[in-house]
């Protein structure tokens, strides 16, 4: 079963073709890495899939369902969750509230229950709080529940963002450059976390990354992009040896 199918995706900004006919498939339960030099259009692909940009041409299928041009807020309900390249936490909200908001969005109560504090309110709130604590513990943020999110060290903020995305119980998780701005030690921690996530939550993952090490370690398949186009696709081992990839990353003279 294919969790995600992207077919001939195109997107231009003014005269610039940021994404030019990208196609790839994410099989259920697999991890796909998208790599490529700066400005290759990786993040644009994410923003197209998650509805933050409008698709010019092409199709996106999620478990066979056409989700092209769906509004962003509808996608988490279908089972798609994402993180952002430049961290988008609710920075003035506590760590706990960051995770809780996603859980209560997924499984909530209505306005009447809120106002009159019905049994449903207490039941759902209780459940959500329990779940939030579990997730916070899993991401090793216990004891920091009440910290404002922006008081956390950078690496922990990254983990919190992934925790918030997973609180939506997605079928697929799109992670945009999780290693950006991290030191090598933090990248190692993150890699470990992502592996555990994969094991425990049994979901498909698409990961954009600059740092080859991180992607190669975790991906089942790697898609390489350059100038908005897919230049190759294969297992990490194949990609590492490919001439075109080395050319895109290091320049022609290194071949």
């Amino acid at each position: 079963m294919n969790a995600l199918e992207v077919e001939g995706l195109e997107k231009s900004f003014g005269g610039v073709k940021a994404v030019d006919g990208i196609s790839f498939v994410v099989e259920e339960g697999k991890t796909v890495g998208i790599i490529g030099p700066n400005g290759a259009g990786k993040t644009t692909v994410f923003n197209l899939i998650t509805g933050f940009y409008r698709v010019d041409r092409g199709r996106i299928l999620f478990y066979g369902k056409n989700i092209t041009r769906t509004q962003p807020y509808k996608l988490p309900h279908l089972g798609i969750a994402r993180t952002f390249q430049n961290l988008r936490l609710f920075s003035n909200l506590s760590v706990f509230e960051n995770v809780l908001s996603a859980i209560l969005k997924k499984d909530g109560y209505n306005v009447v229950s809120s106002v009159f504090r019905t049994a449903d309110y207490f039941m759902k709130e209780g459940k959500a709080e329990k779940k939030a604590r579990e997730l916070i513990e899993f991401f090793q943020l216990s004891g920091k529940e009440n910290y404002p999110a922006n008081n956390l060290p950078y690496g922990e903020q990254r983990r919190l963002e992934i925790a918030r995305a997973l609180a939506l119980q997605p079928k697929i998780l799109l992670v945009d450059e999780p290693g950006a701005g991290m030191n090598p030690r933090e990248v190692q921690d993150l890699l470990q976390t992502l592996r555990e996530v994969k094991e425990r939550f049994s979901l498909s993952i698409v990961i954009i990354e600059h740092q080859m090490g991180l992607v190669m370690n975790i991906s089942d398949k790697v898609v390489v992009m350059d100038f908005g186009e897919k230049i190759m696709e294969g297992t990490p081992g194949e990609v590492k040896k490919d001439k075109r990839v080395i050319e895109a990353y290091l320049g022609e003279e290194f071949i």
Binding site: T50, F52, Q71, P72, Y73, K74, L75, P76, H77, A81, R82, F84, R88, L89, F90, S91, N92, L93, E97, L100, S101, A102, L104, K105, K106, G108, Y109, V111, S113, S114, V115, F116, R117, Y121, R164, A165, A167, L168
Partner: peptide, 29 residues
Amino acid sequence: HNLIYSRYGLFWRCIKNDELASASIGINT
């Protein structure tokens, strides 16, 4: 008070913090 300290109040505060992130967790901002 009851609205503020419920999921709706929480979503309002999420929106104040970051609208894009709010949409990314499924809030119809």
